[in-house]
């Protein structure tokens, strides 16, 4: 799981790239020909009204859609120019490189420590207790949770508050040391203060990780992201620098959505 050199070679080489991505749930087409580049060490926000396909696209990026029987993906998605849907790539390895944080905090019913240690243990990246201890501490520190929980690492993760649980889930994702972190509306179940903490955290994480975030809040997209992609009815309408999308959108549908005329 070493980081490939491509990510730091130049700021413009995409970390991940979708090429004519189509997704079907049974007969119904959920995404049509999405071409999207995700640049390294940036936060890319996917916005759009409910049911527009932004979460579907996000779940394609680490093949979480494989879990759904009736879901079928066409087109090509690459991670560092490797096709992630090719048969020689194991989705389990892919997910170690492309981590995910979900809408609702979902800590495992284990201690805080074991929640973080889960990934390193199953991937065998840390063998000794000391190594795992270190990973737990650095992950929790990066997620801004260490100071709050360092004295109760052995207490169940489910006993934390909602915002702390979500930061625990982020720490859990970081502990595997992924290259990309996908976040599916990570703040929608949280109050404004917890949301602010997570947003701050996302901005810090950008230094080490590439982040793709789905959000319903346009303010959030504007605050945390460098690039924004607007989805509508299963189509990628427009993608560009966040500032440009929010101040000077080229498509009238984007304009309509960000000014609140629909959605």
């Amino acid at each position: 799981m070493s980081k490939t050199s491509g990510s730091s070679a130049s700021g413009t080489t995409p970390k991940m790239k979708g090429d004519k991505v189509k997704v079907f749930y049974g007969e119904k087409q959920a995404l049509q020909d999405v071409d999207l580049e995700i640049k390294p060490n940036e936060v890319t926000a996917l916005i759009g009204p409910s049911g527009c396909g932004k979460s579907t696209f996000l779940r394609c990026l680490n093949r979480m859609n494989d879990v759904i029987d009736i879901c079928r993906v066409e087109g090509k998605i690459t991670l560092d120019n490797e096709d992630i849907y090719s048969s020689d790539l194991d989705p389990v390895q892919l997910r170690a490189r492309v981590g995910m944080v979900f809408q609702k905090p979902n800590p495992f019913p284990k201690s805080i420590y074991d929640n973080i240690a889960y990934g390193p243990r199953i991937h065998g990246t840390a063998s000794s207790k000391a190594e795992i201890d270190e990973i737990v501490e650095t992950s929790l520190t990066k997620a801004g949770l260490w100071e709050e929980v360092k004295d109760r690492l052995m207490e169940p993760g489910t006993g934390l508050s909602g915002g702390q649980q979500q930061r625990l889930c982020i720490a859990r994702a970081i502990a595997v040391n992924p290259e990309v972190i996908l976040m599916d509306e990570p703040c929608s179940a949280l109050d404004p203060i917890a949301t602010a903490k997570i947003e701050e955290l996302i901005d810090e994480l950008r230094e080490n990780f590439t982040i793709v975030i789905v959000t319903h809040s346009m303010q959030q997209a504007a605050r945390v992201s460098q690039r924004t992609a607007f989805f509508h009815l299963g189509e990628l309408v427009e993608v560009g620098d966040t500032e440009q999308i929010f101040t000077n959108p080229t498509d009238s549908r984007t304009q309509g959505y960000i000014t609140g005329r629909f959605g």
């Binding site: 680490n62 979480m64 879990v67 389990v92 390895q93 892919l94 997910r95 170690a96 490189r97 981590g99 995910m100 944080v101 979900f102 609702k104 979902n106 800590p107 495992f108 019913p109 284990k110 889960y118 990934g119 199953i122 991937h123 889930c169 859990r172 994702a173 595997v176």
Partner: peptide
């Protein structure tokens, strides 16, 4: 056992049997 726990485990790159052994059975 909520699906979100399975998703969380798969999202970390766990296989099905790892998820069952370490997450679903304990839960």
């Amino acid at each position: 056992v909520p699906q979100s726990l399975r998703d969380g485990s798969y999202g970390l790159g766990a296989t099905k049997s790892e998820t069952i052994r370490h997450v679903i059975i304990p839960a």
